[in-house]
Design a protein around this nucleic acid. Structure first.
Lengths: 211, 211
DNA sequence: CAGATACAGACCGGCGGTCTGTATTATTCT
DNA sequence: AGAATAATACAGACCGCCGGTCTGTATCTG
């Protein structure tokens, strides 16, 4: 085939295959030849759709990010919930997302490939915090379910702590450590009038650590 | 010269040159040829002292870490200070270290080279928190200058927040943002009975952001 | 004088990336 | 409508360079 009628399918194939390989072996250890072999495409095909190997990585990250933010946006725009309730729901879905299917398999990937860690920090501070957590915090302040005079900073700290500290994916932890961190996190948020982690989520995180 | 009487000097030369290059161009973009050109050594010499390019990076990181922890250990073991005072002193020296001479030049380096970011997170959670912040926190609890029932978690959160969130080095920030974050951070620690950032440090951070 | 040490530098496989070629589709012109 | 032309979607040979190895050699130590 020389001119495909549906090049988007080829792009999707490349992205799917590449992300799988990145997860398995890490970005550095995945060569273009690996992607070529797995997709049975040619080097020309891949470089026709992507400018570089790193462009593939960024596209993979973007696609993941878009899915996550779409889910978060849905919660943010839901009606009939207080700010605190929305925030709780966001955390629930974020944890659920990360555990089933999605980010779970990234364990070795994230560790092996710090480039992603940096991208994630960037997306936390430039996307998730200002566009998703912050408006919900503001709602919570308005409806009285959240108390703080610095929502901007609180939104950043909440996400930094949950993603980089609390989330057990990033490092090996014992169940006790996970529980202790969750308790501390709840103590922290209680200061602002709300609590995000209930027993269900904590159990899910603990359970994940066992495996 | 074929057999040097002081090979340690060669190692130091490699480490000094490499760290400088890593800072300037980032690890990935620094080639072994760059190091060879700058040191005027041969490839054989470098691979005689280091097993790989990454081994050089790790050695550079280790050397920096050793210097930092030595300074922190000195504060930790000082006599005649309360726990809260020691913690404050640790933060002061950490900021001072990072601004004058040391980590300042790492700005593009850390951003360009996420491998270091991962190493830093590891060292925060495995070294700095348990061995330096935690004992000081315990002292503070004993002498009444710090109040918390979860010193382990607090030590981790303090360092995560200060290093990855508060520290302006990692991302561009306006003076207002820096001040707001510092205020939030002080509000946070006040909850545990102490305050870490005084006007001097905040001014130093703001000043740094201008340049 | 016999290792062991501290280099020097040619050499190599493989990597990311480029470049040219070609088949197929879309567009334009008459 | 249909031929000419351009643009697209690949294929795959090719290239420069990079990290790493390997052999050779001069100097020091025991």
């Amino acid at each position: 085939m020389a001119r495909n009628k549906h090049p988007e399918q080829t792009v999707k194939l490349i992205l799917d295959t590449a992300s799988q390989l990145f997860f398995q072996k890490g970005y550095d250890r995945t060569t273009l030849q690996d992607i070529i072999d797995a997709t049975k495409l040619s080097k020309g095909a891949i470089y026709h759709h992507f400018a570089s190997k790193e462009a593939i990585l960024i596209a993979v990250a973007d696609r993941m990010g878009e899915y996550n933010t779409a889910v978060l946006a849905e919660v943010r725009d839901r009606k009939g919930l207080t700010g605190a309730e929305k925030l709780r729901e966001m955390f629930r879905t974020a944890v659920r997302l990360s555990f089933q299917g999605g980010i779970v398999n990234m364990l070795p990937f994230l560790i092996e490939n710090p480039k992603f860690l940096a991208l994630q920090m960037e997306s936390i501070l430039n996307e998730a915090a200002p566009h998703y957590a912050l408006p919900v915090l503001r709602e919570g302040i308005a409806d009285g379910s959240i108390r703080t005079d610095r929502p901007e900073e609180l939104s950043e700290v909440l996400l930094i702590l949950s993603d980089l500290w609390l989330h057990p994916i990033l490092r090996p932890s014992t169940p006790e450590q996970v529980r202790a961190r969750c308790t501390f996190f709840n103590q922290f948020t209680r200061q602002y009038g709300f609590e995000l982690l209930d027993e269900d989520i904590i159990d899910a995180m603990v359970e994940f650590c066992r495996s």
